[in-house]
Simulated scan of single mutants.
Amino acid sequence: MASTNNVQMLDDVTKNEKNGSHMQSDREDKHYMWTHSGQKTYKCEECSRQFSKLCNLKMHLRTHTGEKPYRCEECCRQFSRQGDLKTHMRTHTGEKPYRCEECSTQFTQLSHLKSHMRTHTSEKPYRCEECRKQFSRQDYLKTHMRTHTGEQPYRCEECSRQFTQLSTLKTHMRTHTGEKPYKCEECSRQFSKLGDLKRHIRTHTGEKPYRCEECSRQFSKLDTLKTHMQTHTNEKPYNCEECSRQFSQLGDLKCHMRIHTGEKSYRCEECSRQFSKLGNLKRHIRTHTGEKPYRCEECSRQFTQLGNLKSHMRTHTGEKLYKCEECSRQFIKLGDLKRHIRTHTGEKPYKCEECSRQFSDVGNLRKHMRTHARENL
């Protein structure tokens, strides 16, 4: 009897082993079908997207429900996926496990490393169907597409202006908050944009990375080079309706229009003087602060305006840019040339209020005024 039972048990084990083998085989077959055949048996009822695994469908459903079960213990941010939480934690730990073999830069995410690698390979796999422009990252392509669609998904809560990029909105918000996170190490001036700081630093270093192909002049700002290029093309597309003067830049036309309207939108908080141009206000403010951000490398003299520094530098170089058409005399400063020209024209624009004598130079008028001051003693 015992022998019969043992035989039955052995038969049952063998049968179970066979069944288990069949179940394992079924699982392997299903895995192969799901991952290799592309079969997607799990469907989202909300948007009809299909998935090969149930767990992927469950994670996807959180995009509809808003469920975020994974929470950061450091800052309480919540995430819909555990992998996203793990990646986020590296912002607290500083861990950067992904390293570029070319330049040793390290990254918190593998996707960031892959994108970075394209800066070495110049690979641009994402192409715009509208204009065929190519991009190294998919998010760059998405942002670019808004130039075709006109979409501006980021809106300022303060003034309702809309932007195509989140970074542009963040920068714009500083115009409301007054935040200036970028500071110059040389003169402690602060800026709301990193680009503005970089351009400002060139006033200290003298770096001029933008060069004119026509005359080889170099500039510290790209927009200054673009403006300069119009001196070669003589292009002036902006026309004043009042006096028909033409300008190469829209900003110059707008500033010019204030001559006709008398508008002075920029006001000094110290003395209430008003100015038609922001640049003029900034220069004026230095008369109150005493700030002289432009320094001569030769003799260490400092100046409130870049133009004054440039003029001063010619006293060291001996360069004389301004030439008299009458006698070919050359001058370091434009003001000196203008005064000299009056010796040819006989013009005397400065008049004494006491005796009506006229002078070609304001300095000579001042000297003359002292003769009246002595007479009145």
Rank of each mutant, 00 (worst) to 15 (best):
T149E: 11
L197V: 07
P125W: 13
C156L: 09
T121N: 06
H176I: 12
R199S: 14
S115M: 15
K124M: 12
G178K: 02
M145D: 03
L225A: 05
K226H: 01
R211Y: 02
T227M: 04
T203D: 00
E157Q: 14
T121P: 02
I201R: 02
Q134W: 10
K142H: 12
C215I: 10
L141S: 06
S188E: 09
T143E: 13
E130G: 07
C131D: 03
E186N: 05
D196G: 04
P125L: 14
R161M: 11
F191G: 02
H204L: 02
F219P: 01
L166E: 09
H120M: 08
F163D: 03
M117K: 11
C184Y: 04
R211W: 01
S136T: 05
L166K: 06
H144M: 11
H204C: 02
C128D: 10
H172M: 08
K226L: 00
K183Q: 15
H200V: 01
E158L: 08
E213R: 03
K133Y: 10
T205E: 01
S188D: 07
E129D: 13
K180Y: 08
T203Q: 00
K124S: 08
Q134E: 14
K193H: 13
R202H: 03
T149D: 09
L222H: 00
Y182S: 06
K133I: 09
H148K: 02
E179Q: 13
K124Q: 11
K133H: 11
M145Y: 11
C212E: 03
S167Q: 10
T168Q: 07
H116M: 05
K183Y: 11
F219K: 00
R118C: 13
R127M: 14
R137E: 15
P209Y: 09
Y182C: 05
F191I: 08
H228W: 03
T175L: 05
Y210V: 00
E214I: 03
R127Y: 14
T224I: 09
H172C: 04
Q162V: 05
K226G: 00
R118G: 06
Q134K: 07
L197D: 03
K208A: 01
F191K: 02
H172G: 06
Y140R: 05
Q190G: 08
C128I: 01
R146S: 09
C215R: 04
T203V: 01
M145G: 07
S220D: 00
E151N: 08
P209I: 14
T171N: 12
E179S: 09
E151Q: 09
C187E: 04
R161E: 13
F219L: 00
Y140I: 11
T168A: 10
H172I: 13
H204E: 04
P181W: 13
Q138S: 15
Q190V: 03
C215Q: 06
M173C: 10
P153A: 09
H116A: 04
T175F: 06
K221H: 13
S136H: 06
D223P: 04
E129W: 05
E186D: 11
R118T: 12
R146W: 12
Q138F: 14
K193Q: 15
R202G: 01
C184K: 02
Y140K: 07
K193R: 15
P181M: 03
